[in-house]
Amino acid sequence: MPYFQEFTLETEPSDTVLDALIRIRESVDESLTLRCSCRGAICGSCGMRINGHAALACKTKLVSLESSDALVQVEPMNNMPVIKDLVTDMGGFWDKIRHVQPWLQPTGPTPDAEYLASPESMNHLTGVMGCIMCGACVSDCAALEVDHQFLGPAALAKSYRFVADPRDGASASRLLDLNKPNGMWDCTRCMECIEVCPKGVGAMDRIMTLRAKGIGQGVPSTCGSRHAEVFADLIEQKGRLDEPMLAMRTFGLGNIGHILSFLPMTLRALVRGKLPKSGPLHRAIPGIDRIRRLFRYMRNST
């Protein structure tokens, strides 16, 4: 059974969590096991959970950690099996990366010189190329915790890197693949991946862009894409989120069986006073015209 062990040591203000762990390893318990290498937030080896959130130990200063009793809790990353102490099995992580066929798939003949592409279309990709595959986003992904099949933020960000690359010729098939269950629509937008990423990759933002690109390219509609479209439509029509209608239209008004399956939950919500007072279906809010004007403005400006 996993257990916590406490170590006490003197620290310097400049110390990182990695410095402290190495000091424990060198002077208290040599068997303390972790991956670490570059010490400079470049290699991505030392991903672990620190006080409950994934981070690179080498980039986390001890003084930056808010804890009243100066106790720092380190754990192995979540959403992956533990091998020993702070070392996790990254095999599943890489299987998902491999699933998105993470290599450039250009079409047409290879040019004699480099591919021509504007700096605007290319240079921004360095943001997502900055991903060092440390696993922090996957560790703290809320969707993965309940659905291990979800591709997860790292693989989706990796896929984005090719979908958004003007040299890649496979973005249509990539988006079709991501449109399937466990793909881009399974992100619950909890933002944890953005919060914990040590390199500012912004995986969730990339996933949202993938979704928009998917809809733009007309991938077959899914619950996920309908949810986005119905969400916007309802806001335009009513000026507020009509959750019951959102659910019904997302699953399809014709899908009676699925809608009926919500009944027990609806009844439980009713009993606990969690149904909106306005009743199950909302009317438009006063001043809806102004909201619709916003929508018109958005449409005209894009």
Binding site: L104, E114, L116, M122, N123, D165
Partner: peptide
């Protein structure tokens, strides 16, 4: 570059 390295580009769209 052909394998996929995203080298920095100049204004002509070539590698800078």
């Amino acid at each position: 570059e052909h394998m996929g390295v995203i080298f920095n580009r100049n204004d002509e769209g070539r590698l800078g």
